[in-house]
């Protein structure tokens, strides 16, 4: 038995591919969030009165108390960096040409975070707890998607 073999190419096997295509419905809440982002350039959230918790993006329901919610609260555009990580590999583990930085940002007024890129970094090293602000695509280039947000950058001053 070739037990501690480590190269899959040396083993007899049959190749296969799963061609997966899908369309995902963002839902009523997603529609409200992405429309507000595209048309007004704002981050729309939902407040749960009972839980005293503000979700972002907005939601139709509260995961904590099961209440029905509406898209009623604008949050940001400033926020706080709750965590960050610097990526050196792509999805399949191959080295990236340029490292990519992602972060968790809690927009002002929200209790949830957004997962997005950290861009336009200056000389100062990133730190958890630092102030950041959202960077949006120009109005004419927005398509009502999460990529209408370019990322977050350290706040000026």
């Amino acid at each position: 038995m070739l037990d501690k073999l480590t190269d899959p190419a040396l083993v007899r096997r049959w190749g296969g591919e799963i061609p997966v295509r899908h369309r995902y419905t963002p839902g009523l809440a997603g529609e409200a969030f992405f429309t507000a982002l595209r048309d007004r350039g704002v981050l729309l959230g939902s407040r749960c009165e009972a839980c005293e918790y503000i979700y972002v993006p907005c939601r139709l329901f509260c995961e904590r108390c099961f209440a029905e919610l509406t898209a009623d609260t604008e949050v940001g555009p400033g926020g706080t960096l709750e965590s960050f990580a610097i990526g050196y590999v792509d999805v399949e583990g191959e080295p990236l040409d340029e490292p990519v930085t992602v972060g968790l940002v809690m927009p002002d007024g929200a209790d949830a975070v957004l997962f997005h890129f950290i861009v336009e970094q200056g000389e100062e090293p990133l730190e958890i707890g630092m102030r950041v602000e959202v960077v949006l695509r120009p109005p004419g280039e927005r398509t009502a998607s999460i990529l209408d947000i370019v990322g977050f950058q350290p706040a000026a001053g």
């Binding site: 960050f84 990580a85 990519v100 992602v102 997962f115 958890i128 990529l147």
Partner: peptide
Amino acid sequence: PLGVSPLAVAGLEMNA
């Protein structure tokens, strides 16, 4: 849509 490796989630969790 960000297209980054899910290892990003592990890196963010580790830092936090």
